[in-house]
Design a protein around this nucleic acid. Structure first.
Length: 554
RNA sequence: UGUCCGAUGGUGUAACUGGCAACACGCCUGAUUUUGAUUCAGGAAAGUCCAGGUUCGAGCCCUGGUCGGACAACCA
């Protein structure tokens, strides 16, 4: 009997609506504006909206909120669809707010005829002036008292293209003294002689968010319209339109957006990073966009798991990026193929191993997965190990190589370090070791047990690859609290390219969809920049490293 | 000076709707280990923003504060 997982507040609402009979099934929607790439915050929203419908047997529409032709583009539409699919969700209908432009126009006319909307000739400055402030009431526009007929005619003319951008707007007639700023005669339509990615040049007036979103929800009979906290003040207006237009009463619910440590999660800021070349693009693996984490090697499973773990509530939060890393390690540990690669080579010569001899050893692809099989690894007299795996004078708890010390070479033999060679600067250039022939992996009769196991690569057989190691994009943990402009906190060392890493030859067969664990180094995946003869790997995340922590402690 | 949201270990989310605060990440110990990974066992860590009140009993209810956030784009 598994204890039932407690519900988040949205699931509670849905369950109540279902059990009370308010709804027989639910309909949600994911409503991105196609003006940027999706990020992890959107992933949270996607998992929520699609997850709810999946759990309670409803469906989810993908609806592009494309009411501002100036900033929107089909490039973004395509990336968004791609990202949602990649995350593993399937929408019922692909819809666009622009599909409803005719209907929205009729809604506007209806409001005008009910004397609940009017055409205003005020400039945007004047309208801002009329709005007042959160603590001071606004004042009526001088155009507020136009007759219904006049408004109908003017609005038609706006639609017909008689006026220039900004010359007129359509506003709701509510209450300029309202406590809620959004109820102070909000703008419904504005004039933009702009080409729309879907409707082309058909329209020169476009509805504002508030006059498009809720109505689109109603048209689609969305039962639960879920958005982020900053839309709370819009809810009153959302419901005002439902009442006055007498349309399907979708209900809006708000949850706290995702914030993560060491990064920013706003499209505006991410766009800035892209435009100002602080990153190579929207899918630069250091970005928190979905396309970037995908390129970096994160799996959809791990992101869904992450979204599940962070929960949903109404209080502001700052999630430790370490939790995301935990989720991806957890998944990658189960599926990644193990490979060996040496980043900072130190040559070792096995002095008692025959020159010219090559042995083919076998290494399991994944100890976590019995069905993953094994691959062949060449072993020979000259090998590379990591520089950091040798110390001339080793502390007692150093289980790696040092003069006289023994280690196991993974999948191979136990070796002992006999001597080392130094260059003029005192740097270690070469180790001379002897191997224990009867310690061969899988048939070890030596009876020797060692504390350390090293990864290695045969010098003669190694292939070289490029690797890109990523660190956090920002140095500040909480960018919302950090002083000054967010870009002042960019981490200059967030990308480290290692142009030449020595890898076991099996890696030549690497495939883009595959995930790899470079033993003791982390999880990696092939980057699309790879070409024949030059493979590039991204480090998704490091392995947990207790030893590094130990060393730090001193 | 207004209105609206919110407040539980370091972080995030719970608490059967009033019954002596749980789970996850992180942290610390130890065991296992041919990855100092994984796995396993254990531990530290909040008395629930504050002050009153109701109650046999309050993180949950009431009152008043405090703190944090949102709201004044022809953006969404």
């Amino acid at each position: 009997m598994i204890e039932e997982k407690s519900l988040n507040f949205l699931e509670e609402i849905v369950e109540n609506d279902l059990s009370s009979g308010k709804h027989k099934s639910i309909v949600t929607r994911f409503p991105p504006e196609p003006n940027g790439y999706l990020h992890m915050g959107h992933a949270k929203s996607i998992c929520l909206n699609f997850g709810l419908a999946l759990k309670y047997g409803g469906y989810t529409n993908l609806r592009f909120d494309d009411t501002n032709p100036i900033t929107e583009d089909t490039e973004y539409v395509e990336s968004i669809k791609n990202d949602v699919k990649w995350l593993g969700f399937q929408w019922k209908n692909e819809l666009y707010a622009s599909d409803y432009f005719n209907q929205l126009y009729e809604f506007a006319v209806k409001l005008i005829k009910k004397d609940l909307a009017y055409v205003d000739d005020s400039t945007s400055e004047e309208i801002a002036e009329q709005k007042g402030t959160p603590t001071q009431p606004g004042k009526n526009s001088p155009f507020r008292s136009r007759t219904v007929d006049e408004n109908v005619k003017l609005f038609e003319e706006m639609k017909a293209g008689k006026y220039k951008d900004g010359e007129k707007v359509l506003r709701a007639k509510i209450d300029m003294g309202h406590q809620n700023m959004h109820m102070r005669d909000p703008i419904l339509y504005r004039i933009k002689h702009a080409h729309h990615h879907r409707t082309g040049d058909k329209w020169c007036i476009y509805p504002m968010y508030d006059f498009a979103h809720g109505q689109s929800d109603a048209i689609e009979k969305i039962t639960h319209s879920i958005c982020t906290l900053e839309f709370i003040p819009h809810r009153e207006l959302y419901e005002w339109f439902i009442e006055k237009l007498e349309i399907y009463p979708s209900r809006q619910y708000e949850f706290a957006r995702l914030n993560m440590t060491y990064t920013v999660m706003s499209k505006r800021k991410l766009l800035q990073l892209v435009n100002e070349n602080h990153v190579s693009g929207w899918d630069d693996p250091r970005m928190p966009t979905i396309s970037a984490v995908r390129r970096r090697g994160y799996t959809p499973e791990s992101i869904r798991e992450f979204c599940d773990k962070i929960g949903v509530a109404k209080r502001e939060n700052l999630i430790d990026v370490g939790l995301l890393e935990f989720c991806v390690r957890e998944h990658l540990n189960k599926i990644a193929l193990r490979r060996m690669a040496v980043f900072d080579p130190l040559k070792i010569v096995i002095t008692n191993y025959p020159e010219g001899k090559t042995e083919i050893l076998s290494g399991e692809n994944n100890p976590e997965d019995e069905n993953s099989g094994s691959r062949e690894i060449p072993f020979s007299r000259e090998l590379y190990i990591e520089q950091e795996d040798f110390m001339e004078v080793a502390p007692k708890k150093f289980f790696r190589l040092a003069p006289g010390q023994m280690v196991r070479l993974k999948y191979a033999y136990i070796i002992r370090c006999d001597s080392f060679v130094k260059d003029a600067n005192g740097g270690i250039t070469e180790l001379h070791c002897t191997y224990i022939p009867e310690s061969r992996s899988g048939s070890d009769t030596s009876g020797i047990s060692v504390k350390g196991t090293l990864h290695w690569v045969s010098a003669q057989h190694a292939v070289t690859i490029e690797t890109r190691l990523y660190d956090r994009l920002f140095k500040a943990e909480d960018l919302s609290q950090a002083e000054g402009d967010f870009k002042e906190h960019i981490n200059p060392d967030s990308l480290l390219v290692v142009p030449k890493v020595y890898a076991e030859p099996e890696l030549l067969k690497a495939k883009g969809e595959e995930r790899y664990q470079f033993l003791r180094k982390g999880y990696f995946c092939l980057d699309p920049d790879s070409k024949d003869g030059k493979l590039v790997f991204n480090r998704t995340v490091t392995l947990k490293d207790m030893w590094a922590k130990e060393v730090k402690k001193g």
